[in-house]
Simulated assay, not measured.
Amino acid sequence: MEKDKKLTVIIGTGDYPKIKNAKVPGNYLEKEEKLSNIKTVAFIPDRIDENINAFRRVISLIYKKEAENKIQEWKNLGKTGTEVAEEIFNNKNIMLLNIYDSGKDETEDIKNCISNNSTNLKVVLLGRIACDNLYDDISGKVSVENIVKYPHPTERSADYIYWRNIDYKGIPKIKKYDDDKTMINFFD
């Protein structure tokens, strides 16, 4: 990794509800001691599984066309989620953090991390909670050109369809609701 490459921080909402998240690798703490309270990594399960949609979509975002092969490689090598997070940080200079870590609100620690690295930083806020908790505070510290707000990648989010061109498995186009004209005409 080039020394002058920007640190990218991808921020989500919280731990997986029924899956164990990967633990934070030591290299996160070497970069930013303010993160010492954070125990888990966002979007990366402890056991690598491409069927976890949010994980697969975030890896697709990071690795693009190589994502499917990368996930398969990690599985074949028996890598833990923590090892995967460490590799992503070492090779791509990307940290994956959650607003809620093991139920505890880590917004202030994340804001401090962003403030400490604001001159050489890109931030990706995934989901309403990450956007609501951080955007206003960090947009004064990080150039707005270096901040992206995007829907959360999980199926629980109604906006997961935005990931259809990122996720290597794609997302089927399902018409979930009628359009507004149908609704208006229904009452005519």
Results as ranks from 00 to 15, higher is better:
I44A: 01
I44L: 04
I44F: 05
I44V: 11
I44H: 04
P45R: 07
D46C: 02
D46V: 03
D46M: 03
R47K: 09
R47C: 00
R47T: 06
I48A: 03
I48E: 09
D49F: 03
D49C: 00
D49T: 06
E50A: 12
N51F: 04
N51C: 01
I52C: 02
I52E: 03
I52G: 05
N53G: 03
N53I: 01
A54E: 07
A54N: 10
A54C: 13
A54F: 06
F55M: 10
F55D: 05
R56D: 07
R56L: 11
R57P: 10
V58N: 13
I59K: 02
I59G: 00
S60N: 10
S60F: 07
L61K: 13
L61W: 14
Y63D: 09
K64V: 08
K64I: 12
K65S: 15
K65A: 14
K65F: 12
E66S: 14
E66W: 13
E66M: 14
A67D: 04
E68S: 13
E68F: 10
K70L: 11
K70S: 07
I71W: 04
I71R: 00
Q72W: 14
Q72L: 15
Q72I: 12
Q72G: 05
Q72K: 14
Q72C: 02
E73L: 05
E73D: 08
W74C: 03
K75F: 03
K75G: 04
N76S: 11
N76I: 08
N76R: 13
N76P: 01
L77D: 01
G78P: 02
K79Y: 14
K79C: 07
K79W: 15
T80A: 01
G81M: 00
G81H: 00
T82V: 06
A85K: 01
E86I: 00
E86M: 04
E86Y: 06
E87S: 12
E87N: 10
E87R: 03
I88M: 03
I88G: 08
I88Q: 04
I88V: 08
F89L: 09
F89C: 08
F89R: 01
N91R: 07
N91T: 15
K92G: 02
K92S: 12
K92Y: 06
I94P: 09
M95F: 15
M95C: 14
M95G: 06
M95T: 09
L97E: 09
N98Y: 06
N98F: 09
I99Y: 09
